[in-house]
Design a binder for these strands. Structure first.
Lengths: 198, 198
DNA sequence: TTTTATTGATTGAACGTTCAATAAAAAAAT
DNA sequence: ATTTTTTTATTGAACGTTCAATCAATAAAA
């Protein structure tokens, strides 16, 4: 069945298949054969396109992080209001985007999160994204509060977002995105209110 | 070297060795041989005392959860003040206890957390503990706010605690327990203040 | 006919478990 | 107090399984 220009198609198929497999049986039991079966191809193709299993896993994590960044960026560029609150709200909304929160992506993310503790490459990827989230939040908070308060607000909100995310990934029913967004926004309101009272 | 009564000693040695191994190379690369080497015994002993690798991993998770429960219970029983705020404060302090937050226990916890998504037994353990944290928080918040507000406060604080924990486990330097406690308490203050204003 | 994409049997390494052998301590016998 | 026997704890080589990676063979498109 070899047509020309299969590479981008196969790569995407295999990345999707990887998420499906991790969602199904977890990272520990995700074998190249299982991924290949999900994608409807043979196992050997993985080494051909990604150099090996690790290459595919790395590409999958990259995709998830890229999707998240995009989800946030889209919402921030669509803002009419340029206020700090609007920007931070967009960051929250982006982090609880459907494509991120629903199904395979959520469990895959948590699996990589844990895995990144001992795999330098994944750790690097995760760190870059982490820092961007914190730095974005901090920058917006800085527009309405002093440095120290902004720093703490950013760390608190980042922890809240990750915590809601983590708990969502672990509950069998999956994350209730609406409730998570509500709680994150409520916390944001409190942060602003608290500063307003000082 | 067989003395009688080795069982409890070996069991504890192997559980500690398991945490050390997971801290060192991650759950995925934690083999029975590596655990055995850490404990200074042979690999076969693991099957003898725990029925197999899975039994040892389960026992290790049980120990971590028990330690956490104990850390919280000790602080709550030591309270002079019976106020909701004091109880919730004790829960926060217990969750950021040194023995939990420092070193091997932290990474082991996160590893099990991710693993529990696809291992029913671990999931059960994790769920029980989760529910207790939520239920304890909810009960205390109920003493000073209506049901719906209490529910949201409990979910928010639980997410905050887990989020701080997660971020701490992932940063190379480990969790800054002092900062985490500060942020959690600050959030708690806001929750109370927010209700007081309504 | 040439190029490109794909297969799948094979290979070698790594892993968890098992179990007969061993060795030390405890108990019993002298 | 010795020696012998029994019990208990532990070892580590062998076994079967699983997995990722390889590569010669194949088949479709160009």
């Amino acid at each position: 069945m070899p047509k020309v220009g299969m590479e981008p198609i196969r790569r995407q198929q295999l990345i999707n298949a990887t998420m499906a497999a991790i969602d199904e049986v977890g990272l520990a039991e995700t074998t190249v054969m299982r991924i290949a079966r999900h994608a409807g191809v043979s196992a050997g193709i993985i080494s051909h396109y990604f150099g090996g299993k690790d290459g595919l896993l790395e590409a999958t994590m990259r995709q998830i992080l890229t999707d998240l960044t995009t989800a946030v960026a889209v919402r921030r560029h669509a803002l009419e209001d340029n206020s700090p609150r609007a920007h931070i709200g967009a960051i929250i909304e982006g982090n609880f985007d459907r494509t991120q929160v629903t199904g395979p992506a959520a469990k895959t993310w948590l699996a990589f999160w844990a895995s990144s503790m001992h795999k330098p490459m994944l750790q690097r990827l995760q760190n870059v994204n982490d820092r961007r989230l914190y730095s974005n939040l901090c920058h917006q908070f800085r527009r309405v509060m002093p440095r120290l308060e902004a720093r703490n607000a950013a760390r608190g909100l980042a922890a809240m977002i990750d915590g809601l995310w983590l708990r969502g990934a672990l509950t069998p029913e999956g994350l209730d995105a609406e409730e998570a967004r509500f709680l994150a926004h409520a916390y944001l309101d409190q942060l602003f209110a608290h500063y307003g009272c000082q």
